[in-house]
Design a protein around this nucleic acid. Structure first.
Lengths: 234, 234
DNA sequence: GCTGCTTTTCACATTTTGGTAACATTATTC
DNA sequence: GAATAATGTTACCAAAATGTGAAAAGCAGC
């Protein structure tokens, strides 16, 4: 049985010791005391779940939370807030920001583990459904370098030079192949905004299609619905 | 904004009243006092989330939970246990069985709502990833891509290109297969209007039938009654 | 502040859409 | 089997949605 990988960000020594003691055996646990260290660790550790204290020496848990949400690799990683703060308003804020759970100290070890397991199990099931391919039609995606290449008839790779926004836009469609995305959804995923001067998205779609050349035709317009990336013929 | 549909199974009058008071406004709430009633309700109510008491007059919450898991329609529906029982062992058992959350009474309204919203939002996102198009005759109706395909004799998918209104119209019939819909009902569901220059609907039906080709014949006219989508002859 | 890039906005071109009228056809009633 | 009512179908065109070049606005690095 494979252990779940957990990143715990916690500066208070007592809780640190407690977490170490009760989680280290059952999980692949990395415990760091600051956001800075956490960000470093993420370069070579991809946790299945994050335990996050709200108040940390070098910043606020919410900021780190948004940081995780913004990186595609960790945008769907479950985050459990684990904190002394028991103010209902903070709880509500956490949940509406997207927290998977909120546990106040002191907590029960067994319950913590049960909740961790539950979230990890569901998340593992879900992440298979959200798998984003690296190849779509004749496009090759490199998530590390944030580059897209097109493979021509001879198997030669040719760089498709996309701007950062165009890349994010394409990535957004790649992670929802076969689903029509409304302009609102696109705005939210790519710009993290809900409202927009309406034509901006259309304009970006237009230039993305142009840069993708013939492959751009797979990015279809669904009138009154939004846009759709799909392999099917029109 | 659409309300989440919630089924609450709870027999204790105090909690019933509390749930009614704090949830009925923000959610589409159905509150039942027994497992038997809950099962009945499920025949015509597909909740987005279930609130479940552990100890009920006609059985144990766990059994109902397994019942939900076993039905495909509800196997991914989030279930929150809401109970007096605060024994850690029961909590752990609930989570390992697949509970989404476990809240002990007395609880805070706001927190309950925050947790409900969080689970529903994630679940909605996930269920779209697991969505499979609906099938009617040789049509594949896809609510996610907002497209309709027809399967031809060779099993090839062919796009049926519908305008937004036609799609909504078909969607309306797809959600009420076998039921005759009056023009008023159609106007309300598709146009969100009650009154209409009478022939408009007819004209859209006409073009929908035309685009659906032979399959359009399943969209029958009920003179003086409206229209009906049904496989049965009459 | 200048330079070179990206992003956004504007303006206009183009396409799609949907309501209505008019007429054709079918169903219902007596 | 008319007469009448209900429904089917076509054509039209205005309004709305979308595509896109070019100008304007941001923005990082110097």
């Amino acid at each position: 049985m494979k252990k779940y990988k957990i990143l715990a960000v916690e500066d208070e020594p007592t809780t640190q010791a407690l977490l170490q003691r009760c989680l280290a055996f059952s999980y692949d646990l990395v415990l760091v005391p600051s956001l800075e260290r956490a960000k470093e660790i993420l370069n070579h550790f991809k946790p299945d779940l994050v335990l996050l204290d709200l108040y940390l020496p070098d910043g606020n848990g919410f900021d780190f939370f948004s940081f995780l949400k913004d990186r595609t690799q960790s945008s769907r990683t479950p985050v459990i807030f684990l904190t002394l703060e028991s103010d209902i308003k903070v709880k509500v804020k956490s949940f509406s920001a997207g927290a998977y759970d909120y546990i106040t100290k002191p907590f029960d070890n067994t319950e913590l583990m049960a909740r961790i397991d539950a979230h990890c199990a569901r998340s593992a099931e879900v992440s298979s459904a959200f798998y984003t391919p690296e190849i779509f039609a004749d496009l090759l995606f490199n998530r590390e370098s944030l580059q897209v290449h097109r493979i021509d008839g001879n198997g030669q790779k040719e760089l498709v030079s996309l701007s950062p926004t165009e890349f994010k836009l394409l990535q957004c469609f790649m992670s929802h192949i076969g689903k029509t995305l409304s302009r609102e959804q696109i705005a939210k995923e790519v710009w993290n905004k809900s409202h927009f001067q309406s034509r901006t998205i259309d304009r970006h779609i237009s230039s993305l299609r142009k840069k993708l050349g013939p492959t751009g035709a797979y990015l279809k317009t669904i009138s009154h619905g939004g846009y759709l990336l799909s392999l099917e013929e029109r």
